[in-house]
Design a protein around this nucleic acid. Structure first.
Lengths: 151, 151
DNA sequence: ATACATTGTGAACTATGTACATGATGTGGT
DNA sequence: ACCACATCATGTACATAGTTCACAATGTAT
């Protein structure tokens, strides 16, 4: 009796799930006084594990250098990150996480890990591996470095 | 030799794919002079297949009635939609697609269909059906009516 | 020393979306 | 018919996300 599923429906559901997860993450972030983009900046800084120059952040976040200035202003005002002078280039500014910023970034990474396991943890490994192969082919990438999650 | 795949990686890829598709759609829309939200309004009007009152649009688009006014202003100025007086309620305003709007909405629907088939067309039907079951359980919905795609 | 490139930021702008107030209209009770 | 109240669209004002352009300060190569 099963009618053939429409790929359009499948894609719609995929987007709906992404939107729902994004919304849940968004709520959790808002409770901590973070917006999604600022949270992204925190995560990037945490991934790098070192102070990063604003110019480089603009490339990592795929936004304009000007907007990085605004983001860092906000993060600095609220105590998640701080500016440091670059030791050898007086034009550049290094951005580093504060202890509070590190703690929040780790809380986010943990939340992401939990969500992934809750959603996908019961799937057979073969299916996950297969998805990764197809996904990377679709993305035209050959490693996790080119992939930046969940805008 | 295959190492166990990390569900976090899988979730990251899923978001990355969603972002990539969204970006591609966005570029295509920008070329036609549309923003994503305005395109969404066009699609909703096309799905309904009839003139719709602005109040109802605000519910369909999950935004405030005031913003619908602004969106319809934009769509009307650029010739995709037009306002019509409601035949029985002189407070209300009906919004209808122009021929240009219908054509663009069909172009978008066709693009979505093509993308879905390109991405998912070679998967076995059983996998697609299985995904739909899980997806609907995750979304807490029991039909396509509650699902609105890819904003 | 001169020419050019790069970094971060001020100023101004667009797009998205909100809250509040208001005028015009519909609706239900008496 | 009249009054109270709800509803529809919109003007005004505002907040956030993110952009372009201009510019001063600094680095770099000739």
């Amino acid at each position: 009796m099963a009618v053939a599923p429409d790929p359009v429906d499948v894609l719609d559901r995929a987007f709906a799930i992404a939107a729902q997860i994004g919304g849940a993450m968004n709520s959790a972030l808002t409770e901590r006084g973070l917006t999604p983009v600022r949270a992204g900046l925190l995560l990037v800084l945490h991934e790098q594990g070192r102070p990063v120059v604003q110019r480089e952040l603009s490339q990592l976040l795929q936004c304009t250098p000007r907007y990085v200035t605004a983001l860092v202003d906000a993060l600095e005002t609220q105590g998640w990150a701080e500016r440091q002078p670059h030791p050898r280039d007086r034009r550049a500014t290094l951005v580093a996480l504060t202890p509070k910023g590190v703690e929040t970034a780790e809380w986010m990474a943990e939340g992401r890990r939990k969500a992934a396991h809750r959603l996908l943890g019961d799937l057979p490994e073969a299916d996950l591996a297969g998805f990764l192969v197809v996904a990377d082919r679709l993305l035209g990438s050959f490693g996790p470095d080119e992939v930046r999650g969940a805008g």
